[in-house]
Design a protein around this nucleic acid. Structure first.
Length: 422
RNA sequence: GGGGAGAUGACGGAGUGGUUGAACGUGCUCGUCUCGAAAACGAGUAGGGUGUAAAAAGCCCUCGGGAGUUCGAAUCUCCCUCUCCCCGCCA
């Protein structure tokens, strides 16, 4: 959510920035209209309440029954007017809030214009689009031959876009999660384990709602939603709280499964494990002072890149353009790893500074100094890393001509010393 | 699933219709005292909104959440949520 003060004071700037996302300026005018009306109503109703309060006090001291009756009758009328206005205020407030929740975050000056993901500039790269000395196979062929992933069983259990991992495949996944968590612990993150279902409010706070409603799984009976990313529960970890400045910055890392309906056109990304309705992810998340969030974003990015580097995967980092950056983000880096079997770069991490966008939605603040007014803090999130794609890249990069897969050295301790999956 | 108790400020804990945004205690901050500390004493210590160039003052709202009664509600009524205890059931 944007700061209403910024909208009020710099509407032209807000409109201009939103225009870069093809967002109609009308929504800004709409918000301004609600805001103006709300404040007008507020002034009137608050004056009346002040009147009522003082007269009520007066009534309690009046001895004379007649004048007492007169005042009470007067205040009855005032009370009616107040409840009428109160309802109007509530109505306008709700409309204003609803409109505010629809407005995306404003981009950081670094964010370039661009139509879609093909316009994201590459800003760093380590490693090449490596060619193996033989015909590289896509991962779905490798895993089927090795019997470590079973796609049919996934379909049998839950339908398309689900799969079952088994044996060393399952273990490779578990090892990777474990290793990633341990790595981030060493980078200064505190591990959290959260519920995998959350209340609706958490989805609004994180900015998943209203936009991604159709992509989320929900249990009607309990009103709980399956998390699409650990970012959602972590954002609300401290919602409605005022954190002491001494606690900041807070860095968290969490493993969760992620559930997304991903209603894509049939035929797109259907092969293999690249895009399922359920996948695992290790997520990094930061709560920082506003003036430190961009330095934190660089740490986040470098911590994510370190995962790729240590796994020995060629990777490159892009900065997302206006056509690709997410709803809540002010600036985002995507990290992609090379998958020689499929012959494409796979996005394994997305690191974003959302500034105060989520903090406002989650009512998440800190107190700069004892006695000072609370301020919204900044939050950042970054995958470190997304699992199936990391595993895909591992399998496709470490495959050998005979179809076996060498286990990256850093993962071997987590695989009981296993060096090759064959 | 059945029965009972409760939800007040950072914490403990008063308060059952009229200067109670809230006694009292603890904690915290500042000051006095002290060589320094402790103790003692004094003062201060919620959030939001509106207001303002920005502040401040003033005003409004907030005693789990919502609706209601009333001139006036932390105090009365209804609904919801959550917490705790007992019984049953089950991983």
């Amino acid at each position: 959510m944007l700061d209403i003060k910024v909208i009020r004071e710099q509407p032209a700037y807000v409109k201009e920035q939103l225009a870069r996302f093809q967002v109609d300026a009308a929504i800004v005018d709409q918000v301004l209209g609600y805001d103006e009306r709300r404040r007008t109503l507020l002034r009137e109703v608050e004056d009346l309440k002040a009147l009522r309060n003082s007269v009520s006090k007066e009534i309690s001291t009046l001895k004379d029954a007649d004048s007492r009756e007169t005042k009470i009758r007067e205040m009855r009328t005032v009370g009616d007017r107040i409840s009428l206005l109160d309802k109007e205020v509530a109505q306008v407030e709700q409309e204003q809030q609803a409109a505010m929740l629809e407005i995306r975050n404003l981009p950081h000056p670094d964010v370039p214009d661009g139509a879609d993901d093909t316009a994201n500039p590459v800003i760093a790269q380590e490693g090449e689009e490596r060619q193996l000395g033989f015909a590289a196979k896509p991962h779905w062929e490798l895993v089927e031959a090795l019997g470590i992933v079973n796609f049919e069983q996934g379909v049998k259990l839950a339908g398309s876009r689900f799969y079952v991992m088994r044996g060393l495949g399952a273990r490779l996944q578990r090892a990777t999660i474990q290793w990633l968590l341990d790595l981030h612990l060493g980078q200064g993150y505190e591990e959290v384990y959260t519920p995998f279902v959350v209340k609706e409010a958490a989805l609004w706070a994180a900015g998943q709602l209203p936009k991604f409603r159709d992509n989320l799984y929900r249990d009607e009976e309990s009103g709980l939603w399956l998390v699409p990313t650990a970012e959602v529960p972590i954002t609300s970890l401290y919602a409605d709280e005022i954190l002491d400045a001494s606690r900041l910055p807070i860095y968290h890392v969490a493993y969760t499964p992620c559930f997304r309906k991903e209603q894509l056109s049939a035929g797109r990304d259907v092969r293999g494990m690249k895009r399922g309705h359920q996948f695992d992810k290790v997520e990094m998340y930061m709560f920082t002072f506003p003036d430190q969030s961009y330095a934190a974003l660089e740490k986040l990015r470098s911590d994510a890149e370190e995962c790729c580097r240590l796994l020995g995967l060629p990777f490159r980092t892009k900065i997302l353009c206006t056509g690709d950056i997410g709803f809540g983000a002010a600036k985002t880096y995507d990290i992609e790893v090379w998958a020689p079997g499929q012959g494409e770069w796979l996005e394994v991490s997305s690191c974003s500074n959302v500034e105060a966008f989520q903090a406002r939605r989650a009512n998440l603040r800190y107190r700069p100094e004892p006695g000072a007014k609370p301020e919204y803090l900044h939050t950042l999130n970054g995958s470190g890393l997304g699992l199936p794609r990391t595993i895909i890249a591992i399998m496709e990069n470490y495959q050998q001509e005979d179809g076996s897969i060498v286990v990256p050295e850093v993962l071997r301790p987590y695989m009981g010393g296993c060096e090759v999956i064959k």
